[in-house]
């Protein structure tokens, strides 16, 4: 994953925001949910992205005790994060079908 493009990183960031907007998750949980969605990335690649999203104040991480005992860092979306997710959604929707069409035509 790491040597692949900025584009993929941007999309992955959008997906992380989307998952966190639905529920509060910790790192491992997030990796599992991405995989359940069929987004197959190296599990570790989420941590640098989580750090970056925190730096940009799009998400907020907090260490607290989990139900099963040990401390875990749980992530929630900030209001800036919601705005960023909305922008991502719009960009994605406006690009999705034209790109699909273009690629389909190219393939036929």
């Amino acid at each position: 994953m790491n040597e692949r493009s900025q584009l993929l990183k941007g999309i992955l960031e959008g997906c992380i925001l989307a998952i966190i907007s639905r529920e509060t998750v910790y790192g491992y949980e997030l990796a599992v949910k991405l995989q359940q969605q069929g987004i197959d990335v190296k599990e570790g690649s989420i941590y640098p992205l989580l750090l970056r999203l925190q730096k940009e104040k799009l998400i907020h991480g907090e260490m607290r005790a989990s139900d099963s005992g040990p401390n875990r860092k749980y992530y929630t979306l900030t209001s800036a994060g919601e705005a960023s997710l909305e922008a991502f959604r719009q960009n994605w929707n406006s690009l999705k079908s034209p790109v699909d069409q273009l690629l389909d035509r190219g393939g036929s």
Partner: peptide, 22 residues
């Protein structure tokens, strides 16, 4: 700590550290 927790889970599941660190 997050990386350590994640690695411990992988270890329990018998998976390789490369799945985490590449």
């Amino acid at each position: 700590m997050e990386l350590l927790d994640h690695l411990l889970i992988l270890q329990e599941e018998g998976r390789d550290s490369r799945e985490l660190f590449g």
